[in-house]
Design a protein around this nucleic acid. Structure first.
Lengths: 160, 160
DNA sequence: GAGGATATGTCAGCTTTGTTGACACAATTC
DNA sequence: GAATTGTGTCAACAAAGCTGACATATCCTC
């Protein structure tokens, strides 16, 4: 499988011909390692709280968009309401998130982080943010804008 | 909790002072969305094979480094051997991966993808590679090198 | 050659976090 | 008044991680 000694000397920079043979295993792999270690950062804090990564995501998004409804959160996380209910209930019972009946539509539950929830969200984000800042600094000036655009282009545009 | 009307007007653009107040929520979030949709790509293929993401990772890495041992794979994936055993056994029984007794150390099992395993690895990587290529193209020239360096800097350097 | 260390496999049970299906209830809308 | 919508909840199940314990074969050391 390694005998590709054709006359294509430096084809690696040619991205236009993305045939069957040119699969970007390198970036695929780097994404795996980067994300694995990135999500590993908050684990120590989560263990102390007795929470998992599912709780992390909920606290993060509610903190980022205060007043979002349960339906909003389900749409963001792309999980079922039964999955969400489990972790959300624990976070409410533990005093990290509170619910407010929707002012217009009283069926809705607007979600807010408490002071403790904000502190938790910040504590969890801190090592991740530091890792990102360090990586961007090492990568060079202008890296943030490029990386940001790349990540935006990587996610699905439509159903968000 | 929201009454922070001090005299700090425009501190948001100042990135040099990475104090408690400047957390990069934006990139954190983008990483989540990008990775979520990136890993969602192979799901359709995996479902047809009856495999999950754990199988995907195993096939990918064995395909990338033929002849790697079980210990190598455990170190790469950072999971326990009991977790690996489950999916590895299924992949061997299904004929996607085969084991060869180590030529020097006969306790070792060198892992190789079969022809079917290679085809599976390629099929799973293809949509992910396409997504990456599209995202890089949209981001602009030179993006690949910057993104690659960023990802390398994001992962833990030591224990790899 | 005996004994300890190493590489791998396996059994059993548990946890987290996702899933489907079904149903309840209040509030809104038609 | 009837249908729809937003949310909560019960029950069962699946994927994929974990710990602990133990077996076997092989290698390495004294």
């Amino acid at each position: 499988m390694a005998g590709q000694s054709r006359d294509n000397s430096q084809y690696t920079t040619d991205v236009t011909r993305k045939s069957e043979d040119t699969i970007d295993f390198e970036i695929i792999e780097l994404l795996f390692f980067a994300y694995r270690d990135f999500t590993g950062d908050p684990d120590a804090i989560l263990e102390k709280s007795g929470f998992g990564r599912a709780h992390h995501r909920v606290v993060h998004f509610v903190n980022r968009e205060p007043g979002m409804t349960v339906a909003d959160l389900l749409d963001t996380l792309k999980i079922t309401k039964q999955s969400l209910a489990r972790v959300l209930k624990q976070l409410i019972d533990s005093g990290y998130i509170r619910q407010v009946t929707g002012p217009e539509d009283r069926r809705q539950r607007m979600l807010y982080t408490t002071k403790e929830g904000q502190a938790l969200a910040r504590a969890l984000a801190e090592p991740q943010s530091r890792r990102i800042a360090d990586a961007l600094a090492k990568t060079g000036p202008g890296a943030r804008e490029i990386v940001k655009r790349f990540l935006v282009n990587m996610k699905n545009s439509a159903a968000d």
